[in-house]
């Protein structure tokens, strides 16, 4: 479950239909969750992530993993 402020990595491409080809550029990039699903914590929802050097995007959750040293 992602919380606001989690440091995450885009570790793989998502199989979700919301994954667009340009998002392949994001794989391996680290970032911070800026807006998780704020209504019901639905694992299926797209969540907003600010990626270092790539801007802020809404991504499917299955492409993200939380980095262990999250502050």
């Amino acid at each position: 479950m992602f919380k606001r402020g989690n440091r995450v990595e885009v570790f793989q491409a998502s199989t979700d239909e919301a994954w667009e080809p340009y998002m392949n550029d994001f794989i391996g990039v680290h970032g911070v969750v800026t807006d998780p699903d704020t209504s019901i914590n639905d694992p299926d929802d797209l969540i907003e992530v600010s990626l270092q050097g790539k801007g802020t995007h809404r991504l499917p959750q299955d492409c993200l993993r939380i980095l262990s040293d999250t502050r």
């Binding site: 600010s50 050097g53 801007g55 802020t56």
Partner: peptide, 21 residues
């Protein structure tokens, strides 16, 4: 320059984070 390679014009993290930029 989002990759920060062109150092002079690398954007600030806050601006990059803003969905409206």
């Amino acid at each position: 320059c989002p990759s920060h390679d062109c150092g002079v014009i690398a954007p600030s993290p806050c601006q990059m984070a803003c969905p409206a930029g």
